[in-house]
Simulated assay, not measured.
Amino acid sequence: MWLWAKAIRLLAITTCQRRFPHLYNQVTLKQGQKLHMVNQLFPYTVSFNEDASSPTSPREGSKPTKRPHQRDPCRDEAESPASKVATSSLQARAAYSPPLVEKATPVSAKVESAGHWSQGLKVSMQDPKMQVYKDEKVVVIKDKYPKARHHWLVLPWEFISSLKALRPEHCQLLKHMQQVGDSMVQKCPDGQTLRFRLGYHAIPSMSHVHLHVISQDFDSPCLKNKKHWNSFTTDYFIESQDVIAMLERDGKVSVKDGTSELLKLPLHCHVCRKEQATIPKLKDHLKTHLPS
C-alpha cells in the first residue's frame, strides 16, 4: 500500500514539475546533512534539519511521524540514511536557487576604509600622483588641501606617529627633512618673491610626522576658518629649526599646555598684526601684502 501511495505522490510531483518547473524540485540528503533554503520573495532564511523518519516498512508507513522531542535516538541510527525533503513551492524554489543565501542574509553595505581619515597621509605618500620628490629617507607630496599658493609636506618613510614620539636618534632625519624642504623652496618659481616657512604643527590632526613647507601668501580657497589660519600663524606652528634644537637639547619634543587654545585666538594679520573680523575680510587684507 505504501509503495502505491508513494508512486502516486511522485507522479503528481512530476506532473506539477512539467507545468511549473521553476517551482518544484526534489532533493535527497544524506544523514547528518542540512539544507538551507531561501525564499526569493521575502528577506528571510528558512533552515530545515534532516528528517530521518521515512517509513521503512508498510506498517511503519501508517504510523504518524513523531515530534522531534519524542524521537528514539537508537531507532534513528538504525533507520535509512536518506530522507526526502518536502517539495512545497517555497522549499523547492529555495533549493533551486542556493546562491540567494547571501542576499537573504544581508551584511552592512558600509565599506571599511583603509583606516581613519587621520591616517590619510600614509595613503597619499604612496600615491605617485601626489609625490613631487622622494629619496631613500623621505618623500615630498603636495598638500591635498593647500592653505597657500605653495604648500608641500615632507614625510619620512619611517613611521613616526607625532612630535612626542621623536627621539635623539631622529635628529639626522629631521635635518634631512629640512634640507629637502629648503631645496623645494629654491626650486619653486616664486621662491625669490614669496616668503616661506618650514615647521610642524604642535598637535597635528593627521598622524605621521610631517614637515610643512608653505608660502606666506595664504592665497588659497582651502583656507576657510580661524583654525586653519591660527594653526600656521601662531606658536601652534613650530619652526623646523626649533624642533631640531629642542630634540638635541632635551632628547624629546615637548608641547606646552594650552597649545590647542591658540587655535581660538582672534584673526591677526601675520605681517602687520592688524585684527580682522572674518576670514573674507582677512583675505582681502592679505592681498595688500602680496608682492606686486
Results as ranks from 00 to 15, higher is better:
2 W>N: 09
3 L>Y: 11
7 A>D: 09
8 I>S: 03
8 I>Q: 07
10 L>S: 11
13 I>Y: 11
20 F>H: 13
26 Q>V: 15
28 T>K: 09
28 T>Q: 04
31 Q>S: 13
31 Q>H: 06
43 P>Y: 02
46 V>T: 08
48 F>D: 01
49 N>C: 03
52 A>D: 07
52 A>G: 09
54 S>V: 01
56 T>G: 09
59 R>A: 07
64 P>H: 11
64 P>R: 07
68 P>A: 06
68 P>E: 03
69 H>T: 01
71 R>C: 02
72 D>A: 02
73 P>D: 06
74 C>H: 05
75 R>P: 01
76 D>I: 05
78 A>N: 11
79 E>S: 12
86 A>N: 10
87 T>Y: 03
89 S>G: 04
91 Q>C: 08
92 A>S: 15
92 A>D: 06
97 S>N: 15
97 S>H: 15
99 P>S: 14
100 L>C: 02
100 L>R: 15
104 A>T: 12
105 T>V: 05
106 P>G: 10
107 V>A: 05
109 A>T: 14
111 V>M: 13
115 G>Y: 07
118 S>M: 04
119 Q>P: 09
123 V>P: 00
125 M>F: 01
125 M>Y: 01
126 Q>R: 12
128 P>I: 06
129 K>N: 13
129 K>T: 03
129 K>I: 01
132 V>N: 02
137 K>L: 12
142 K>R: 15
143 D>N: 11
144 K>G: 09
145 Y>Q: 10
147 K>G: 01
148 A>T: 14
151 H>E: 06
151 H>K: 07
153 L>G: 06
153 L>A: 03
153 L>E: 03
158 E>G: 01
162 S>C: 10
163 L>P: 15
165 A>H: 13
171 C>T: 15
171 C>Y: 02
174 L>R: 04
174 L>V: 03
177 M>T: 02
178 Q>I: 12
178 Q>F: 00
178 Q>C: 07
179 Q>Y: 05
179 Q>T: 13
180 V>P: 14
181 G>A: 14
181 G>I: 01
183 S>Q: 14
187 K>M: 07
187 K>S: 13
189 P>I: 00
190 D>R: 03
193 T>N: 15
199 G>Y: 13
199 G>Q: 07
203 I>N: 11
207 S>F: 02
209 V>N: 01
209 V>L: 15
210 H>D: 05
213 V>D: 09
218 F>T: 08
219 D>E: 13
219 D>Y: 03
220 S>W: 10
223 L>Q: 05
223 L>S: 07
224 K>V: 15
225 N>M: 09
227 K>M: 06
228 H>S: 09
229 W>K: 05
229 W>Q: 01
231 S>H: 06
234 T>Y: 00
241 Q>I: 07
241 Q>D: 13
243 V>Q: 00
244 I>K: 06
245 A>H: 11
247 L>P: 14
247 L>Y: 03
247 L>K: 01
249 R>L: 08
250 D>Q: 10
250 D>T: 05
251 G>R: 02
252 K>P: 00
253 V>N: 09
254 S>W: 01
255 V>C: 09
257 D>N: 03
261 E>H: 11
261 E>K: 15
263 L>E: 08
264 K>W: 02
265 L>E: 11
265 L>D: 05
267 L>K: 06
268 H>D: 00
268 H>C: 07
270 H>D: 02
271 V>I: 15
278 T>D: 09
280 P>D: 04
281 K>N: 12
282 L>N: 03
283 K>D: 04
283 K>T: 04
286 L>G: 02
290 L>N: 04
291 P>E: 10
291 P>L: 08
292 S>T: 10
